[in-house]
Nucleic acid binder design. Structure first.
Length: 190
DNA sequence: TATTAGATTGTCT
DNA sequence: GACAATCTAATAT
């Protein structure tokens, strides 16, 4: 585990390395209604040489935060209805980020269920997808460009690292380019 | 339980 | 005008 300074260093090391080490860390959203947080259990790395990455096309108005310094929160809207959150990695102008694909509810589970209209279904499936993570945590486009390490409403908190043998690397899903790149990291528990 | 098809909005060419 | 880093629901096994 590491403190905020340690986290920043991990992020600056690059998206691939950061994706593996972010497993076990927690995302916190400090809102008026209460604290909502979850443990990161699935990530996906996007680098500047990745055809599937938004940054591959170049820096645009939408992907601008992705080119900022490590620790920046990058939120984008997908398919017009779902938003996904990323942790910007590397350094200024690099265009690397880690997509938070899934978390395990830690605190404020009731608020998540109510926000998502989840009706008595297993909490395990409450945020097991990129779009669900944002919706469950209440993270929206207005958080885009924020600093996860700067004490904002949305924070990244260090947590216990899962055992190396519990980390599974698999091909990516839901994209049309370079989908077979093994850059999806899943914390598999037994 | 696994697989297939449809929905829906912003951004880029 | 077309595409996109997805989710949900319904149908088949």
């Amino acid at each position: 585990m590491a403190n905020d300074e340690g986290l920043r260093g991990i992020l600056e090391a690059g998206a691939v390395a950061a994706a593996a080490k972010l497993l076990g860390c927690a995302i916190e959203h400090h809102a008026r209604g209460g604290l909502r947080s979850g443990t990161i259990v699935e990530t996906e790395a996007y680098t500047e040489d990745d055809p599937a990455a938004h940054s591959f096309v170049g820096r645009t108005a939408r992907t601008d935060p992705m080119f900022r310094r490590a620790g920046t929160l990058y939120v984008y809207l997908s398919y017009g209805i779902h938003h996904c959150m990323n942790v910007v990695c590397a350094g200024e102008g690099r265009g690397e980020a880690v997509l938070i694909r899934a978390i395990e509810p830690l605190a404020g589970t009731d608020a998540m269920i109510e926000a998502r209209g989840w009706r008595g279904k297993p909490a395990k499936d409450l945020a097991n997808g990129p779009g669900k993570v944002c919706q469950a945590l209440g993270v929206g486009l207005h958080h885009n460009g924020g600093d996860l390490l700067g004490g904002g409403a949305v924070r990244l908190v260090a947590g216990p690292s899962p055992p190396p043998d519990a980390i599974v690397v698999t091909p990516r899903i839901g994209i049309t380019k370079a989908a077979d790149w093994p850059r999806r990291f899943v914390w598999k528990r037994k």
